[in-house]
Design a binder for these strands. Structure first.
Lengths: 147, 147
DNA sequence: TCTGATTAGTTTCAAGTGCAACTAATTAGA
DNA sequence: TCTAATTAGTTGCACTTGAAACTAATCAGA
């Protein structure tokens, strides 16, 4: 078997998590929560549903990540007044203090991954990956309409 | 934030795992072990170290996956006679009976991911992903020489 | 208006994963 | 040859994740 896209995306994902954990070892939240924090810091007021959709991750995982971020004092939840089913998410002061550090780290991750690649290679790859993701999501939707 | 390669590979990986789990729901081993079984079926006699390197996955995860596959009767271990540190892995009869099914499923996964893509797009993407993976591995090696 | 369906978020359970510390086997160097 | 270092594999721990069943709030249709 030669390399294929599935194996490579899996390997990249796993090993990038390791990179991220190393770079943010002293930051007192677990590896999965960095992404959530990052997105919230870019889109304050986002709901958990939107966060799940943005990251293409299950809502139960989002609920737990958010719970942890709140417990660590980095973000806070606020009930939407017009529809009390929604929780809107905002950075706390402590979250805001750590925000720049996270942004730098994420920028560094992008630089690491794109080393030795031209801008057009990167753009084309992003396009193809987006197509692949849509293919996979369509396949999963076919099987199960929910979640 | 626009989509980036890290987010896309993570999303593809997570959602492909869901696809695979759905397709192999009735197969009595967990999601992570399908990949291991597949590689072993293609390379009988492979060691756990080689398996870890092939999948770019940690050796402790490999040890547990192999343990489960053995417990379920799909594969067997055999000590290398020349160097007893190595365990060599082989399919059992039951493993061999299920092998074709797994191969078909993996082929189906490739077909799903590559829908709407030309052969050259796929090949170029694989090249880029390989470069990215090497970038990430090099970065991690810099931090930690072992594992 | 009221009842049933839908929706956002939570919780429990089972499973995969990495890290660190471990054992057993082998190799390298004094 | 013998001791220290290396190497393959294992185990315990912490953490992430998805599925399924749940609650609370809202919406849609009779």
């Amino acid at each position: 078997m030669a390399d294929n896209i599935n194996k490579l995306t899996a390997a990249i994902h796993r090993n990038l998590q390791i990179t991220l954990n190393n770079k943010l070892k002293d930051f007192s939240i677990g590896s999965g929560q960095h992404d959530f924090f990052y997105v919230i810091s870019l889109h304050e007021g986002i709901t958990q549903k939107e966060l799940s959709e943005w990251l293409y991750i299950g809502k139960s995982t989002t609920a737990k990540a958010v719970k942890n971020l709140v417990a660590h004092g980095y973000i806070r939840k606020e009930k939407d007044e017009r529809d009390k089913r929604y929780d809107r998410l905002y950075l706390t002061d402590e979250g805001r203090q750590n925000s720049a550090r996270i942004h730098e780290t994420f920028k560094g991750i992008v630089e690491i991954t794109t080393k030795h690649l031209s801008q057009s290679e990167i753009e084309q790859t992003i396009d193809v990956l987006r197509t692949i993701l849509n293919n996979v999501l369509a396949e999963n939707k076919e099987i199960n309409a929910d979640q």
